[in-house]
Design a protein around this nucleic acid. Structure first.
Length: 697
DNA sequence: GGTTAGAGTATCTTC
DNA sequence: TACTCTAACC
């Protein structure tokens, strides 16, 4: 194996295979390279079976990328390595042992919306006002308990205030409800394996023997449950390698404790520590900018990150008039980059909150720039998709009261709140699920529909089942008769859902409903299934962690936005925002753009925010500032690039596009048209002037 | 039981 | 702004 491309420290990190190893890897120091090479080294040089390696990443995206990169080193064997997130690893353990844990194999996983619904329901049962007892706050508190491995009984002695006592009561009921519904939440995916291992040491030992080599990425972001879980698995052989960077710890709000990484040397007595301090990613300018910001955090271990790359371009700071102007500037700049031959996939636009993405989405669409929004304003949280999934889940697990309540009256069947309340009480009295409690009335017709679907589901592919559900429930019909733009989009999304099920069927052959539901429950983003290469990425800073781009635009650098208003109260929160800023800056390889707006629409009101403090922390010599003092005429006037009258297309029609060349229409909706170009399928505005119809010969 | 209007509130980040 | 929830009507 060729290790000659690695520096001394990297090489050491790759070849120190036995025992505990801590790799403190600064941003861009080749961390992923080390991890993937290490796995390849274990297999090729140390002759470790791929089955004996467990690699944990933080996101699905990172897991996917790691597998690809290992695969390019060692080929097909890579698919036998367990590379997954903590949550999907936990899910796997639960699936392999669900009977011991007291769950039926057809359990379902509730997402955070579902959990919130359950909590609201419980508050209602307890006759508590959700205004006094904020359901979201309760949810977070319960999740916090679970991540600290605190059961309701354990929480009892901490619950002293009135609010905490309510949380305790809700927590107790919440656990009971989940169990009754044969369902789990995200936190259970970590908690249950730990419980299992505590009660059944022999099972733990099986996993310890199975995974003799453990690697964990982004260790600074592990919470207590994840920390304990990894410790348990690695306890017997102690071949554990953790990689991380305390300066990039940005998940404390969900229980991550960056001290886990600082305490590693205490946890493993003979642990070896390797520092990776050479940055291969960014120009000196970018790196210095990152350093000048992060050094304002107190109580951090000083690092000496350096780059052998050149100075590079200065950082561009643009102070826009408002958020639209911010988008316009980015679009103008990107167009210039593209003209210079820069690829779309090398450009990223970052923001602090998902809400900021709207304006970019809108303007990018108008400007005809190909983009993808990566992140959690997910496809899967759309109403129609959640409804469809609720049907599928109920077909799969009729104990799932949450799903049942969601769709028993969607589309309208004349089953109102009163009937549902009655059903809940009946089920409660008889000690059954709501589904089983149905015996008569309009509800019985609904039950019949589900029974039919259950029956046919055994002989249909997943995609066929989806169609069947939409047809027999009348869901599709209802949307079709609406004839509104909104209904149109919903129908389009349901079609999109089928393209996902189809993709699954292509990858796995026949996929069972069970596998599909579990597989998708951990993925919030359709983009993770697609692999379109040449698009500009728009995403939150949290989702961009672990990725890198040549050109990076960091937007919304305003007090109240970034740093976010909720973080200004305490020092810890502010320091986490600063780490977030550090992560954002260090994503860029070649050039960094920093932007903010003088005035921004927030909750329907204009707000004027001062520039972010992070900007003033930057060394001014690294920056070239531009700003717009006065509001100017909107340059990208719609008339300039849109036809006034509607243009219509038919599937199969040929068109010519100013940038993408010849293409063929593959899909048409009310406002958009999908066209297959040589460069791939693009979704464009129908009325855009850059598209011209071409008569077929 | 369904519909609608008006009020109230919220978005911070994710598996 | 945009969404959700509630109360009062039909």
């Amino acid at each position: 194996m060729d290790l000659s491309t690695l520096n001394k420290e990297q090489k050491e990190a790759v070849t120190t295979t036995d025992g505990a190893l801590l790799v403190l890897a600064g941003a861009g120091s080749g961390k992923t390279r080390v991890l993937t090479m290490r796995i390849a080294y274990l297999i090729e040089e140390k002759k470790i079976s791929p089955y004996e390696i467990l690699a944990i990443t933080f996101t699905n995206k990172a897991a996917k990328e790691m597998r690809e990169r290992v695969s390019s080193l060692i080929g097909a064997m890579a698919k036998n390595i367990q590379i997954s997130t903590f949550h999907s690893f936990g899910l796997q353990i639960i699936r392999e042992n669900c009977n011991l844990l007291g769950y039926d194999h057809n359990f379902v996983i509730l997402d955070s919306d579902d959990t919130l619904t359950v909590i609201k329901r419980i508050l209602k049962d307890l006759n508590l006002d959700p205004k006094t007892y904020n359901p979201n706050a309760i949810k977070n508190k319960i999740s916090g308990c679970k991540n600290e491995l605190m059961t309701p009984i354990g929480y009892e002695r901490f619950a002293t205030s009135d609010f905490e006592k309510v949380v305790l009561e809700v927590y107790k009921r919440y656990q009971k409800t989940l169990k009754q519904n044969n369902s789990l939440d995200f936190d259970d995916l970590l908690v249950l394996p730990i419980e299992l291992f505590k009660e059944h040491p022999e099972i733990l030992e099986r996993y310890q023997d199975r995974y003799q080599y453990v690697l964990i990425d982004e260790y600074q972001d592990t919470n207590q449950a994840q920390y304990i879980l990894s410790k348990m698995i690695a306890y017997k052989y102690k071949n554990i390698c953790v990689v991380g960077d305390p300066d990039q710890s940005i998940y404390s709000w969900r229980g991550a404790n960056y001290r886990n990484i600082l305490n590693f040397e205490k946890d493993y007595k003979n642990a070896k520590t390797i520092l990776l301090e050479e940055n291969y990613r960014s120009t000196k300018t970018i790196l210095e900018a990152a350093n000048s910001v992060i050094k304002n955090n107190q109580g951090r271990k000083e690092k000496n990150l350096w780059s052998s790359k050149g100075e590079g371009d200065k950082i561009t700071y643009y102070r826009a008039y408002d958020e639209r102007d911010e988008a316009f500037y980015i679009i103008r700049e990107i167009k210039q980059l593209l003209n210079r031959g820069i690829k779309e996939k090398e450009i990223a636009v970052l923001y602090r909150t998902n809400a900021q993405s709207h304006i970019f989405e809108e303007e990018f669409l108008k400007a005809n720039l190909p983009f993808k929004i990566v992140g959690s304003i997910g496809f899967y949280s759309r109403k129609e998709i959640k409804d469809l999934l609720a049907y599928l889940r109920l077909i799969h697990n009729d104990k799932d009261n949450v799903s049942l309540m969601r769709i028993i009256n969607v589309p309208k069947r004349g089953i109102g709140l009163k009937s549902i309340q009655n059903l809940i009480e009946k089920a409660d009295k008889e000690g059954t699920s709501m589904y089983d409690a149905i015996t008569s009335g309009k509800e019985a017709a609904f039950k019949n529909t589900i029974e039919d679907l259950k029956r046919v589901s055994e002989n249909l592919t997943l995609t066929e089942l989806v169609d069947k559900v939409l047809d027999t429930t009348g869901y599709r019909q209802e949307l079709e008769s609406e004839k509104t733009l909104e209904a149109d989009i919903r129908l389009e999304n349901l079609e999109e859902f089928k393209s996902i099920t189809r993709a699954f069927e292509e990858t796995y052959g026949v996929i069972s409903l069970e596998d599909f539901l579990l597989e998708t429950s951990l993925i919030s983003d359709v983009e993770e299934y697609k692999d379109e290469k040449d698009r500009i990425s728009l995403m939150t800073i949290h989702s961009v962690k672990g990725l890198e781009f040549d050109y990076v635009f960091v937007t919304g650098l305003e007090e109240g936005i970034f740093p976010h208003i909720n973080s200004l109260m305490d020092k810890g929160g502010l320091e986490e925002e600063r780490r977030l800023c550090y992560v954002a800056i260090t994503r860029a390889r070649e050039k960094l753009y920093l932007l903010n707006a003088r005035k921004r629409m927030l909750f329907g009101k204009d707000q004027v925010n001062p520039a972010s403090r992070f900007l003033s922390e930057l060394d001014p010599t690294l920056i070239e500032a531009k700003q717009k003092e006065e509001p100017v005429e909107v340059k990208l006037d719609e008339k300039e690039y849109l036809h006034e009258e509607d243009v219509n297309y038919e599937v199969g029609e040929y068109v010519y596009h100013d940038v993408f060349g010849m293409g063929r229409v593959v899909e048409v909706s009310n406002t958009l048209v999908s066209i297959a170009f040589k460069a791939g399928v693009k979704k464009l505005m129908k009325n855009h002037k850059s598209i011209k119809k071409v008569e077929a010969e």
